[in-house]
Simulated scan of single mutants.
Amino acid sequence: MSAAVPVARWSDRLELGEGIRWVDGRIVLTDILTGRLLSAPPGDDRTDGPLDVLTELPVPLGAVAPVAGRPGDWIAAAGTGICLLAADGTAEWLARPEDAASTATRMNDGTADPFGRFWAGSMTYDAADGAGSLYRVDRDGTVTRVLDGITVPNGPAFSADGTALFLADSARALIRRYPVEPATGELGAPSVFAAPPSGSPDGMTVDTEGGLWTAIWGEGVVHHYRADGTLDQVVPLPATQPAGVCLGGGDGRTLYVTSARIGLTRPGPLDGAVFAVRVDVPGPPTASYRPEHGS
């Protein structure tokens, strides 16, 4: 597999850019700690203009997924829980399970699976060991904690058929693979899919051949793993903290990568930028949250 040189897109430099997705012919992403949901206009090829602000919440915004049948609506991992975001920015909270956490906790990355459920992780602000969780939102809106004991959950990402979940425990530098029961979303016993030799695996996305892309926080690279977990490509970036990845573009073969400036004492000119790089294998379409009772 080959890849071109990454190009910085748009003029924004994000504090903590993550949760990037290709939705309706455009990228959508979050700047977590500012609570902003951002996008580029469909077909936008600018390299010097800003991203558009779709909405801004008064709480951190980890990630979103589109809601099927409701154009402009999102399900979001935000603040201490999960909410539905209307096109006008109004939030309807499904649950705030981390309100009662003993240490200040926020939601982090999340994604929809091919069966219409939404999954999102939580972490403490100080990344306390084992204090994070993974939540599943079923199509009826029920929010269930399905995993705990994670420090910084990232990804998550699903195989194209939805029968495997990839979840990074970033602080422990591991990517685990969980079997998924399609009918219920129950998780089976995990196995270690990959353990990068340095840095922390962060956001992830799959391609149509079963490969997995992941941003490696702290190392300024993106890794590609084959379906068997073999590392077969390393793409260098001119940013120290790559954070989120997705496959998109007209043919699904553009890899978009977010990055972050947070915590850097002397950020470089491209730290916090969004990058685009052409790759050989496309990604599957972005999954939507599909509520049982549509609009």
Rank of each mutant, 00 (worst) to 15 (best):
P6G: 06
S11C: 11
G17N: 10
G17E: 09
G19W: 11
W22N: 09
W22I: 11
I27D: 06
V28G: 04
T30Y: 10
T30W: 08
D31L: 07
I32S: 08
G35D: 09
R36W: 05
L37W: 01
L38H: 06
D44H: 02
R46D: 15
T47K: 05
G49E: 11
L51R: 10
L51V: 13
V53S: 03
V53N: 12
T55F: 04
E56A: 11
P60G: 04
L61Q: 07
G62V: 07
A63C: 15
V64N: 03
A68Y: 00
R70L: 10
R70F: 15
P71H: 12
G72Y: 04
D73G: 06
G79C: 13
L84D: 08
D88W: 01
G89D: 09
A91F: 03
E92S: 06
A95M: 12
P97N: 12
E98M: 11
A104R: 13
A104W: 10
R106I: 05
R106Q: 00
R106G: 12
D109L: 07
G110I: 11
A112F: 00
D113F: 14
W119S: 05
W119E: 12
A128S: 02
D129W: 11
D129V: 08
A131Y: 07
G132L: 15
G132E: 03
V143R: 06
V143K: 09
T144R: 05
V146P: 01
V146R: 06
V146W: 13
L147Q: 06
I150E: 11
P153I: 12
N154P: 10
P156W: 04
A157C: 07
A160M: 09
D161F: 14
D161C: 05
T163E: 07
L165C: 07
F166P: 00
A171P: 09
I175R: 02
I175A: 08
I175N: 04
R177C: 10
Y178G: 02
P179E: 02
G185H: 13
P190H: 02
V192N: 09
F193D: 06
A194G: 10
P197Y: 15
S198K: 09
S200H: 14
D202N: 01
M204P: 07
T205I: 08
T205Q: 15
G210I: 06
G211W: 00
L212A: 01
W213V: 15
T214S: 11
V221Q: 00
V222I: 04
H224S: 09
H224C: 02
R226L: 12
G229S: 02
D232F: 10
D232G: 09
V234Q: 09
T240Q: 14
P242L: 04
C246D: 10
C246E: 13
G252W: 07
R253F: 03
T254N: 13
L255W: 14
S259G: 03
A260R: 14
A260G: 11
G263C: 14
G263N: 08
L264W: 14
L270M: 15
L270C: 03
D271E: 05
A276I: 08
R278V: 11
V279E: 13
D280A: 12
G283M: 05
P285L: 00
P285F: 04
S288T: 03
S288F: 01
R290Y: 08
P291H: 14
S295P: 01
S295G: 13
